[in-house]
């Protein structure tokens, strides 16, 4: 039973936006990449995501947003996890202009996935983020 344990990822939409096409596609890509996706779905708050990360002992948090809120919500999620004492990397999915990537990286966001990212890139990005978390 002691095979390499699958990476556990919490996936959520942070905020009110209901466009979940990208999140669902990413969930399936990660599943097909051998990961376990704890899918929270729509309208989550930093508090509800933190509850899930803590109880699920997740390796990575993936949040998706479509409404240009990434500069507010991305760092908000990173800081909220840090405040809760959870050392879990955050990956953001959504429409993020290239020029914002350094800002998000500086704020502690572990990875950014744009629309149409290929499965291999999605899985590699989450794997790389998971590797940052020691166990």
């Amino acid at each position: 039973m002691a095979d390499a344990a699958p990476v556990r990822v919490v996936l959520a939409k942070l905020g009110l936006d209901g466009h979940d096409r990208g999140l669902k596609v990413v969930a399936r890509m990660l599943r097909d990449g051998g990961m376990e996706v704890v899918y929270l779905g729509l309208r989550q708050t930093t508090a509800s995501i933190i509850d899930a990360v803590e109880q699920e002992d997740a390796d990575v948090v993936g949040i998706s947003m479509l409404n240009a809120g990434h500069l507010t919500l991305g760092p908000l999620m990173v800081d909220a996890l840090a405040d809760a004492g959870l050392d879990v990397p955050v990956v953001i999915g959504g429409i993020v202009p290239d020029e914002d990537r350094p800002t998000l990286a500086a704020a502690g966001v572990a990875g950014v996935l744009g629309p149409g990212s290929p499965a291999a890139e999605v899985v590699a990005c989450v794997q790389a983020a998971a590797a940052r978390r020691g166990l």
């Binding site: 969930a27 599943r31 376990e36 899918y39 779905g41």
Partner: peptide
């Protein structure tokens, strides 16, 4: 693939809260 999508929490947000 050995992966899984675990979707039960979608319906349990209020319970977690």
């Amino acid at each position: 693939t050995g992966g899984a999508i675990l979707g039960d929490r979608v319906r349990m947000t209020a319970a977690a809260a």
